[in-house]
């Protein structure tokens, strides 16, 4: 078995399994911790608040955009860019379809489209990360998990970019190795915010939705 076959095969399935199981364990664990029962008389619906809270925090309030714009643009550029690259780059579509979805496939973006998405993803991630070390607040509250998470994600993206010419198996293998490491790290780290955000937004939305307010 070649190195490439190993990182695309057994190691990938192992990492993927850890990613799914540990991730589910963590989310289910969070849900199982439950929620304190609130018996005060509600003014609004907690369930609707859960949903509304989730949408509310996608959109920053206008009074704050004056000083938040860089973070907002960086954050959206990175997250949307990464999502598009992840799901619509032709090699990714082929890989996912081949390795996980048993042949189910969907149309991929043309090459220029996914290059543009990658540009946005890189620009956003760099903005977010340099902000993390050049701002006293960010320096105080950032820990190793934040830095490793950012860097691992960056390296996964970078090695993916290195392999763009698709002419050397080793480049593809290195990208896949980084992906495997990233998948292993993900469920134990703050990268899990990708899945836990709906819980925190939802809880706040539910708590205050009962009071007739979505802060």
């Amino acid at each position: 078995m070649s190195f490439l076959e190993f990182v695309e095969g057994p190691l990938f399935y192992f990492s993927g399994t850890v990613f799914v199981l540990a991730g589910l364990w963590r989310i289910i664990g969070l849900i199982r911790l439950g929620r304190r029962k609130d018996i005060s008389e509600p003014k609004g619906s907690a369930a609707a608040g859960f949903i509304r809270g989730n949408f509310r925090h996608f959109f920053p309030r206008r009074v704050f955009t004056k000083w938040m714009w860089m973070h907002i643009l960086g954050g959206y550029a990175f997250h949307i860019g990464l999502l598009v690259v992840l799901l619509f780059a032709a090699p990714h579509v082929a890989f996912l379809s081949d390795r996980i979805l048993a042949g189910f496939s969907w149309p991929a973006l043309p090459r220029w489209g996914f290059i543009i998405a990658a540009e946005f993803a890189f620009a956003g991630l760099i903005v977010l990360w340099v902000r993390r070390f050049s701002n006293p607040v960010m320096r105080l509250i950032s820990d190793w998990d934040d830095h490793i998470g950012s860097w691992l994600t960056f390296i996964v993206m970078l090695t993916g970019m290195f392999a763009l010419q698709e002419s050397h198996d080793i480049l593809r293998a290195i990208h896949m190795l980084m992906v495997d490491i990233w998948l292993l790290y993900f469920p134990f780290s703050r990268l899990m915010h990708a899945f836990t955000f709906f819980l925190s937004r939802g809880h706040t939305g539910a708590t205050y939705g009962r009071k007739g307010m979505i802060p």
Partner: peptide
């Protein structure tokens, strides 16, 4: 704590740099 967090932050940075170096060396 600030200092410690910074140190750990730098450890994270170091780790990341090592990863990057390892990557180049692998190449």
């Amino acid at each position: 704590v600030f200092r410690r967090l910074q140190e750990t932050g730098q450890a994270g940075l170091g780790f990341a740099l090592i990863l990057l170096c390892a990557l180049w060396l692998t190449l």
